[in-house]
Structure formats: C-alpha cells, structure tokens
C-alpha cells in the first residue's frame, strides 16, 4: 500500500514537471516582466529556467560613451544554447539614450560561465553593449533579448523585454 502511494506521488510529481516544461516550449512574444521603476530590470521565466537582465553603468556623463551589460542565465538543468543567435534589439527613439545599431549579436565577445556539472556548456553569458547618453537626466535603456536555453530533452526560444536606469549628468 505504502509502495503504491509512493509510486503515485512520483507519477504526480513527474506529470507536474512535464506540464511545466510543456508550457514553456512555445516561443513567446516580448513580455514586460519588470516595472520601469526597478533598477537593472530583468526578466525570468516562471518555472525559472532562464533569466535575462540588462545592467547599466548607473551614472554617466552626457555625450559620453557607456556600456550596458546583457546577461542571460540558464537554471535548473538548462544551459545557454550556443547555437542560437542570441541578440539584443534596443528600443530605438528612447530620449537621451542612443544605441549605434538596431541589433547586437550577443555572441560577439561574450563572457561565458561554464555550468558546474557540464563545463562544455555555459550556464551564464554576458555581453557588453555600447551606447551614448545624449541628454541629461534620469533615462532608461530598453530593449528585447532573444535567447535560447536547452536541457537534454528540449530547447526553449524566448524573447524578453529588459531595461536599465541611466542617470546622465553634466
């Protein structure tokens, strides 16, 4: 009887995990996970298999060149999919913040942190993306990160909105 209860519990747990995985197979349209008030606003998948964030330099002098850092982290058995063209598309026309391109290939010069259990795979990648502060005041760098993470069974492709506060001073 006890064995049967244990079996049933295991089956229910496996079904719950399978259902959670199925829900996140579909690539999604960009979703706003973070509010504009959050510093270094980032986005995570419910179920927490990936996390994408944008971190700014905080303060920067007007007209000077700065960098934001795009980071993608894979969790819970997933790793960053090296074969996918991860990209950051900044929101253009944002007052006070100018990026030099419509799209940045995040694989160019990215720093990879290997997964502890699978050093051939990366569990985190970080890329520096240049921008220019063009007007004084509190601004936000915004954009969409296209990313992919995989585990041995499935891959996910997602697009998430990220943003970071920029304080441009004289």
């Amino acid at each position: 009887m006890l064995r049967q209860v244990r079996k049933l519990r295991g089956a229910i747990a496996a079904l719950a995990v399978a259902l959670a995985l199925v829900l996140y197979i579909c690539p999604s349209e960009p979703q706003k996970y973070a509010s504009a008030a959050d510093a270094g606003a980032s986005a995570s998948a419910p179920g927490d298999v990936f996390h994408a964030s944008l971190t700014g330099p905080g303060r920067i002098a007007v007209s000077s060149q700065g960098e934001v850092v795009v980071e993608v982290t894979a969790r819970n058995g997933f790793h960053v999919n090296d074969e996918y063209p991860h990209s950051f598309r900044p929101t253009q026309g944002v007052e006070g913040v100018r990026f030099g391109a419509d799209r940045f290939d995040l694989r160019q010069g990215w720093e990879r942190t290997p997964c502890p259990a699978e050093p051939d795979h990366a569990c985190a990648v970080r890329t520096r993306v240049p921008f220019q502060a063009t007007a004084k005041g509190a601004r936000r760098a915004e954009g969409v990160v296209a990313l992919s993470v995989c585990n041995p069974e499935i891959c996910l492709i997602e697009k998430v909105s990220v943003s970071a506060p920029i304080e441009a001073t004289e």
């Binding site: 199925v22 197979i25 579909c26 690539p27 992919s148 891959c155 996910l156 492709i157």
Partner: peptide
C-alpha cells in the same frame, strides 16, 4: 511540432 525552431 513541439520544437520551437520548427514553430518559428
């Protein structure tokens, strides 16, 4: 049909 690349 479950593969996100195929869907895309």
């Amino acid at each position: 049909p479950g593969c996100p690349y195929v869907k895309a």
